[in-house]
Amino acid sequence: MSKIKIKDFNLFYDNFQGLKNINMNIEENKITAFIGPSGCGKSSLLKSINRMNDLVDSCVTNGNIYFDDKDIMKTDVTQLRKEIGMVFQNPNPFPMSIYNNIAYGPRTHGIKSKEELDKIVESSLRKAALYDEVKDSIHKSALKLSGGQQQRLCIARALAIEPEVLLLDEPTSALDPISTLKIEELLQSLKDDYTIVIVTHNMQQALRISDNTGFFLNGELIEFNETDKLFTFPENEKTENYITGRFG
């Protein structure tokens, strides 16, 4: 089942067209990877899904993105971002305690009761496979965690508002291999409950964890297919050239 449908979507930065006529359906409870060279538009598309591009003044879009068949442009942006969480390239925990980092989202959406927040913090940390590592320092600064832990904290923070979709923008590019593996494991365990979209520069990562992969080049979606299929017998020559490293 498609969780997100992208229809004839175009995106412009001033006079530059960042995305050209994108059509794709992102399946529920699957991991979808966006790959492609820098500047190919994959991150722009990701940021369009939860309307983070609204923040860029020069960014104009047309076409539609539907989330559960609702046009995201007609959805309240706060509500949309509650349902579509996002994790960024560099871990960006707020300079506050681990507890407050995770409680930030629920508090934003009006949860005040301490018992409830306690419960959310614990369950989010557990879901992000971080609870055992931090349970004794939950009221200490989040900035004291290692990079990999910080990124898992950011995932926990995103999970705390109970989204249905998780968008990840190169979530492991700043991390060491072990932390990367932990995050990959985590994402695979999360896909039963969430729809995950991940932008990655690491093709092996896309191969390891994703069910479907979209290859972008110069703002176009060149090929969108099952990951196994795309990496063994790509339909488009451009995809073949990119993934086999015979690019440009």
């Binding site: 093709m203 017998f233 993934i243 086999t244």
Partner: peptide, 9 residues
Amino acid sequence: ENPVASDLR
């Protein structure tokens, strides 16, 4: 080399 696509085949 982690071959993929035609290389893997």
